[in-house]
């Protein structure tokens, strides 16, 4: 792969740092009057999400990472891998392992689109959309009269996630949930 020199650094650039695929979040050039120029760079490790800062002497270079972010359709899980398909008409499939799927695992629904990060064509991270709509598969029956107090109860969704829901929610309801906070938003249909 190509190399990027510090003066080509910009946010969004995908590079290899210590052998790990990373994305540049921020890049600041620091240059004292007559001193050496440095780049203070904030990275996100695309595999584990860790964010950290490293300083480079200006003129240094880092290797580019073959990273692609694409939307893919979730197909099924086979117990070991989670299978996704490209939506560009190629029907090409990839299999994500448990560590790549970890952020999206609780929010998977077949045929929905997820953002998949491919490194050297293999998935390293899957992100759910900010909001998903999932069906309730298990919850205690709501009790009449309790709604006024705004009480909540746990409900299990088809994906396996457990969220706090209002007492009026029943099995079979489809709920809209914010995947960033895991919070119930509203009931979409009955």
């Amino acid at each position: 792969m190509a190399n990027y020199v510090t003066n080509e650094f910009k946010s969004g650039l995908k590079v290899l740092v210590d052998g790990e695929p990373c994305s540049i979040l921020e890049n600041e050039v620091v240059k004292p009057g007559k001193g050496q120029a440095f780049n203070r760079v904030k990275f996100r490790n695309l595999r584990n999400g860790r964010v950290w800062e490293r300083t480079f002497k200006s003129g240094e270079s880092v290797e580019a990472a073959d990273v692609m972010e694409i939307d893919m359709e979730y197909l099924y899980a086979d117990g070991e891998f989670w299978h996704f398909m490209k939506t560009d008409g190629s029907f090409e499939q990839v299999a994500a392992d448990a560590s790549a799927i970890s952020d999206a695992k609780d929010w998977l629904k077949e045929q929905d689109a997820y953002q998949v990060i491919l490194w050297n064509e293999a998935p390293i991270s899957v992100s759910p959309p900010n909001f998903v709509e999932l069906e309730v598969t298990e919850t205690d029956p709501g009790l009449k009269g309790d709604t006024a107090q705004g009480g909540t109860k746990p409900a299990t969704l088809s994906s396996g996630a457990v969220v706090k829901v209002p007492l009026f929610v029943n099995i079979g309801d489809v709920l809209r949930v914010d995947t960033r906070t895991g919070e119930y938003q509203n009931r979409v249909s009955k």
Partner: peptide
């Protein structure tokens, strides 16, 4: 104190990094 790439810096460079950061 600082995550610095490479190690070919001189005394002035290091002092300047510490000063800055």
């Amino acid at each position: 104190l600082i995550d610095v790439s490479g190690a070919d810096l001189d005394t002035t460079d290091y002092l300047q990094l510490l000063m800055d950061q």
